[in-house]
């Protein structure tokens, strides 16, 4: 099994940042757990599929807390420590964090086949459910009550997204350059509606370059 590279990392390396990211996902864990590797592993790719299917279907309003509960506490495939390390990487990479995490965990146990089974498990049933809901909605969308309810839900969605941003800011406050980058991104994308590609390439490379320079002795 290829789980050793994570377990053997020098203590403290990366873990602080990983823990911060982890808390930002509003979960409680004991991040001081010794990095003991988890004891169990999935019996088969189908086992992976079923576990990810289960955690996705429980994940109303966010799958991440359920991922920790299912994978670490119930199945015991990962220790909290390993989960944090993987999540940190999943969050840095583009794409849905939870989808990236599924790919990584699946790959770790059964290679590409495991990755595909894990991500299919996570997506198959919710995809059908969400389209069924959309069909129901399109049949009823001309009803003023349904439209009003959806408007209310949309207002909550907007609040949830901003609230998540606020939590992220609170869990790891940016320094001065970071605030400027954040404000500039909001201005260019939110208010001016500039194409994202150019904002990301321009501001993104500037911001990474600044971080690189700051990180050097």
């Amino acid at each position: 099994m290829t789980r050793d590279p994570i377990g053997r990392r020098p203590p403290g390396f990366h873990v602080k940042a990983a823990r911060r990211d982890y808390y930002s996902a509003t979960m409680r864990i004991d991040a001081e757990d010794p990095p003991a590797p988890a004891s169990r592993q999935p019996q088969s790719p189908v086992h992976l599929f079923l576990a990810f299917n289960r955690l996705a279907l429980r994940g109303f309003g966010g799958v991440l807390p359920w991922a920790q509960r299912t994978l670490v506490e119930e199945e015991g495939w990962l220790s909290n420590h390993e989960f944090v390390e993987m999540l940190a990487l999943a969050q840095v990479l583009p794409g849905p964090n939870i989808g990236n995490l599924a790919l990584m965990i699946g790959d770790r146990f059964f290679g590409l086949r495991g990755a595909l089974m894990a991500i299919s498990g996570m997506f198959a049933a919710p995809l059908v459910i969400v389209i069924a809901l959309a069909m129901l909605y399109s049949g009823f969308s001309d009803q003023p009550t349904v439209a009003a309810a959806l408007r209310g839900m949309g207002a909550v969605s907007a609040g949830l997204i901003v609230g998540t941003a606020v939590k992220l800011i609170r869990s790891s406050p940016p320094h001065r350059a970071g605030w400027a980058m954040m404000a500039a991104t909001f201005l260019m994308v939110g208010l001016l509606r500039w194409p994202l590609v150019w904002v990301m390439l321009g501001l993104g490379s500037l911001s990474v370059w600044l971080a690189w320079k700051r990180g050097r002795p």
Binding site: H14, A17, A88, L89, Q91, V92, R151, G154, A155, S157, A158, G159, I161, V162, T164, A165, L168, I169, S172, P174, A177, G178, W179, M181, M182, A183, A184, T185, F186, V189, G190, L191, L196, M200, L203, G204, S207, V208, W209, L210, A211, W212, R214, G215
Partner: peptide, 27 residues
């Protein structure tokens, strides 16, 4: 990876704020 994460974090948060704003601005 550290530079990437540190550098991209504020951009990511700025984008979340922009998304929330665009959704809320219709109201």
């Amino acid at each position: 990876v550290r530079a990437f994460r540190t550098g991209m974090a504020p951009i990511t948060i700025g984008l979340l704020l922009a998304t929330g704003w665009i959704l809320a601005a219709q109201n």
